[in-house]
Design a protein around this nucleic acid. Structure first.
Lengths: 411, 411
DNA sequence: CTGAAAGCGCTTACAG
DNA sequence: CTGAAAGCGCTTACAG
């Protein structure tokens, strides 16, 4: 535990902290304020988490401390946080706080030797800027909220990881918000995040409340939309055409000679429904669309549900020769349930999934699916947002990253 | 887009916002400040994301706005954020900002009618408190960082969801930090989160750098450790005995008559190694421990790897009659790979997993595993942290939530 | 029960 | 290139 005395401050007599008084790190540096140098008695002290041990000198008091302020010049009892502040750093470097601030942020021209001195002092004191103070003064935080529907889909975890890797090196901190596919919940999160003056925003898809849309626009916070594409010119997005991807998979099934192709879906979020549209478009064009072969469940997607959907579909339509599942977990569940149901895949029924999640390649038979570019979506959205936060205008407002049909044994 | 004029403030002439001047929401309420009521000319205005439409009256200016300050009394050009502040609410409710603050926070005794008036005004103005200002003034935010090793393990996602459900109703916001099992990364995250003056902290396990431990202690921020248990009296934790759980599973395999029991693990994080200890302890007690049957890979855990570990183990030790995998994804991979390798489960080799992840019950054969109480861990840790943040001392500093052996077809 | 003053720790906007 | 003043939007600590 490392401690210091608050310079020019009176504080509560340490009830919470051990009754020891430590020499000021500033004194150790030989740059302490006058009153420290003169040995003012300290009434209490606070813990300095950021202080490296090398800057500490322990000075034990002879007996229990009988705190009484020596200085009564203070007009009123101030609060003290005990934290190392910019002022401490500035004093240690013998510059003004503004110069210290500029030196640390690399802003404007500061004399190189001053920059070095400030950097040194900050390092020695273990100074960590207060993000709250910074946000308040600058009206801008370094926070970038990323709103995703859920974390239980590896899809979004992959996107989040990539976004994090893209933004962290530039000093931004991502803030993960989970909407559970609920526009109301998203609106609440947005309100709460907007109050934090975020530097930027990453949102999943375009489906949200009008209220949310308005607040977003009104806030002026740069925002990039994930997973989908749009033709609207005033919106930034990175994704791929969910509809085209759905269509592509169904075309593959048609190419394989299947004609009674079912669509099984859960969750029914906007992107799932877009894939459904692709399914319909493709089958209509081929003249084999049958609305009865769509099985849409609003339940959450899961391996277990996939097996149930398979059973239901084949029970009702024994002539089905292929099933396109809107997500890999459902398809995996179908593959696992098939042997128990006495269904041969792909001979009797071909099974296709979507997203190429973990385990799909290992299934028996291995799962034909659509590989979606979630890592690239994370990277590119971070890059686009970075540009927007710098005030630049990205070359394109909407990036279509495509997808990849991945044919394996199940079709 | 909703706007207002800044009261008592001069601002940049709207370059970013349309050149319209809107009537102040305060005026609409009939509680505007004197200068507004007298029709002071507005130089510019800002966007108010929080303002409900009902509070807005659009007043278009006749022509392009030729901004020139009427009032030159202001000593210097101030900054204006255009946000609805506590002062706005206070003015609308005709109380002082302090009273408004207290009324909104439900702190101390404020006259009920005043509370109502303030609440009303806040509602009408769509006031959202500034968390940065609040944190700065109170030295305490409502943020609760939760540090987990990764998000790609459903285990931690479940814990996070439960923690969120436990803390959100009390006004705390969780902040997800991913350490990637790297103590250095955790230390960095901790430093950055500690600077935000978090209300509390949730950490996974006890394995961290000394530096991190010190900063943690020095910060005085209430902290609960997840997933593991300890006998140390000064530490708060909610979890279960990983070692006992490992031991329990191996005992089950012994009970089934298996004697050549292998242990296959990946990631090798502290909890995995504790399970390994349980495995060893149990087999040593039974007199059938063989160090050669341990296959420890530092790779990340995955379905694919599980199949590889199975193949390796049986290649090297064809006499193995059971394998305990440290995590379900590995065990699932083994079950999926077994048919391709010509291995019959459980007749030839029994397969056991750990955690009861999604899909384990659907495997063929279904997977015997240990169900871990991650939801309860999330709930109870939130409850314990809540108590600590209120300054209370929880009855027990360490909660052991146990685990449940779940026997299915694979053993 | 209510409020005026001061302060939290930074940065902006000026001025030199 | 450097700094004194003011301000960001709240709450604490007093005083009544």
């Amino acid at each position: 535990m490392t401690t210091k005395e608050p310079s020019k401050r009176r504080t509560d007599i340490g009830q919470r902290y051990p009754k020891r008084v430590l020499k000021s790190p500033l004194q150790s540096l030989g740059v302490g304020p006058a009153e420290s140098a003169q040995g003012t008695l300290f009434q209490g002290f606070h813990v300095l988490p950021q202080l490296p041990d090398s800057a500490i000198l322990n000075v034990l008091l002879p007996g229990p401390f009988s705190g009484k302020p020596l200085s009564t010049a203070l007009p009123r009892r101030p609060r003290a946080s005990g934290r190392t502040t910019l002022a401490d750093v500035a004093r240690a470097a013998s510059v003004s706080p503004i110069t210290a601030s500029r030196a640390l942020r690399g802003e404007r021209a500061v004399a190189p030797d001053l920059v070095e001195r400030v950097r040194q002092a900050a390092q020695t004191l273990g100074y960590v800027p207060d993000p709250a103070a910074r946000a308040l003064a600058s009206q801008r935080s370094t926070l970038v909220p990323v709103l995703v529907p859920l974390l239980s889909n590896a899809l979004f975890v992959d996107v989040l990881e990539a976004v994090h890797r893209g933004l962290a090196p530039h000093g931004y901190q991502i803030l993960i918000g989970v909407t559970h596919y609920d526009p109301q919940e998203e609106e609440k999160l947005l309100t709460s995040y907007l109050a934090m003056r975020p530097a930027g925003l990453l949102l999943t898809g375009f489906d949200r409340t009008d209220e949310a849309r308005q607040r977003l626009a009104a806030s002026g916070v740069p925002c990039v939309h994930l997973m989908e594409t749009t033709r609207a010119p005033d919106v930034y997005c990175v994704g791929f055409s969910q509809q085209d991807a759905g269509e592509r998979m169904v075309q593959h099934l048609l190419d394989r000679g299947h004609r009674r192709i079912a669509f099984a879906a859960a969750q029914l979020d906007p992107r799932t429904l877009q894939r459904a549209e692709g399914y319909r478009r493709c089958l209509r064009a081929a003249g084999c669309y049958d609305a009865g072969l769509e099985l849409l469940s609003s339940e959450a997607s899961s391996v277990r549900l996939g097996g149930e959907l398979l059973a239901q579909l084949l029970d009702k339509h024994p002539d089905i020769d292929a099933i396109f599942f809107c997500n890999d977990d459902l398809a995996q569940g179908a593959l696992l349930a098939a042997p128990r149901l006495g269904i041969r895949v792909p001979d009797q029924v071909a099974v296709a999934g979507f997203n190429d999640l973990a385990g799909s390649a290992e299934m028996l038979p291995s799962l034909t699916t659509v590989r979606t570019p979630r890592q690239a979506i994370g990277e590119e959205s971070a890059r686009m947002l970075l540009a927007l936060m710098r005030g630049e205008t990205p070359a394109r407002n909407c990036m279509d990253l495509g997808f990849e049909l991945t044919v394996r044994e199940s079709t």
